[in-house]
Design a binder for these strands. Structure first.
Lengths: 167, 167
DNA sequence: TTTTATTTTCAATAATTTTTGAAAGTTTAA
DNA sequence: TTAAACTTTCAAAAATTATTGAAAATAAAA
C-alpha cells in the first residue's frame, strides 16, 4: 500500500469506527488527519483534504480542543491559525478516558444516587433499590479503575498492569 | 420519591445516557424496563409502558437478545412470548464488555494491522507507522485488560482489583 | 482610523437514524 | 385442515443529528 492511500484509509476508517462509540464521524476524521500529519494544518487544509465546509471544520476543531486532544499552533509569518494533535498515543488514551469519565460515567453515578432515595420498603421497592445499588457499585468500581489508569504511566500499564491482572 | 416515579425516571435517564455511548435510546429503555420489572413482560406490556410501536419493540428486544442481556421466558397458560433481563449486574457488565470488545475493539485492531503494510521507508512513512503501532499497542493492552475483567469474578473485581491497582 | 484577513455563528438544508404500522409470515389450537 | 393468536418484516414517515454557507464578529495590517 502507498503511504497517502494508507493515511486516507486510516482517516476514513477511524471516522466510521467513531460512530459506534457515539462520536461524530467528522470530528474523528479531523483528529485522525491531524494525528498523521507531519505539520500543523490550517482550516483550509482540513477543508480541502476532508472536503467539508469551513463551519464544520471550525465546530469540530473546537470540539477537539475542548476534549484536550488538539491544540492551536502559530506558524511564523502566517496570520491564520494552525492546528496540531499530540502524537503521544498513551497521553491521548488518558485524555479521552478522563473526559469520558467526567462527561459520561460521573453523571450516571449522580443519577443512580438520586434515584435511591425512595420512601417505600415493599418487596418490590427493595428489589429496585438493589438493582440501583448494584449498578452504582459496578460503575464506581470501573470509575476507580479508570482513575488509576489515568494516573499511571505508559510503561506501568503495558507491563505491570497486564501481569498483575493475569492472576 | 415514589417507586413508580423512580422507575420511570430511571428508564428515561438510562435512555438518554445510552445515546452518548452510541446505543439506541429505545433499546436502552427496553432493557432498563425489563431490569426493574419484577415479572416477565410481553411485547404489549413494553408497548404500553414505553408508548412505542409493536415493530419497534420487536426490533429492540431482538437486539437485546442478540447482545445476550435479555432472554425469552415462557409463562404457563400464556401463548405469547415474555421477556426478562438478568438481574445480575456484574454479569451484565461482563456481557456488554464482551460484546463491545468483539464488535468494536477487535475490528479496530484488524484495520490497524492491515494499514501497517506500507512499502515505503521515508521519514514520513516511519512516523505514520509509529502512530499506527502505538495505537495498536494501547488498543491491544486495553483489550487484554478487558479480557481479564470478563474472566474475573465479581468479588475479585470489587476488592482485589481495586487494591492491586492502587499501587 | 479604514481595510483586509480570518474566525465564528446559526438558520436553513441535507443526511442519517429511528420509528411506525400494516401486510406477510409463523405457530398453535380447534 | 381452517382460524385465530401472535411475531416478523420493511417501505414510508418522522425524528434526530450533522453540515453548509453566507452574514456577523473579531483581529491584524495598512
Amino acid at each position: 500500500m502507498k503511504l497517502d492511500e494508507a493515511k486516507i484509509k486510516y482517516i476514513h476508517t477511524w471516522g466510521s469506527l467513531a460512530t459506534s462509540w457515539g462520536i461524530n464521524k467528522t470530528m474523528a476524521q479531523v483528529h485522525a488527519l491531524l494525528l498523521v500529519s507531519t505539520k500543523p494544518l490550517s482550516a483550509e487544509d482540513i477543508m480541502e483534504t476532508l472536503k467539508i465546509s469551513r463551519g464544520n471544520v471550525n465546530m469540530n476543531v473546537r470540539a477537539l480542543i475542548d476534549w484536550g486532544i488538539v491544540r492551536k499552533e502559530f506558524v511564523v509569518g502566517e496570520r491564520k491559525e494552525f492546528f496540531v494533535a499530540d502524537k503521544d498515543i498513551w497521553e491521548l488514551f488518558k485524555q479521552i478516558t478522563k473526559e469520558r469519565k467526567k462527561r459520561e460515567i460521573e453523571p450516571v453515578l449522580k443519577v443512580l444516587e438520586e434515584l435511591q432515595e425512595i420512601d417505600e420498603s415493599s418487596e418490590e421497592a427493595e428489589q429496585f433499590k438493589k438493582v440501583l445499588s448494584d449498578l452504582s457499585s459496578v460503575t464506581t468500581t470501573v470509575n476507580g479503575i479508570l482513575d488509576k489508569a489515568i494516573r499511571a504511566d505508559e510503561h506501568w500499564l503495558l507491563s505491570n498492569f497486564t501481569k498483575m491482572i493475569k492472576k
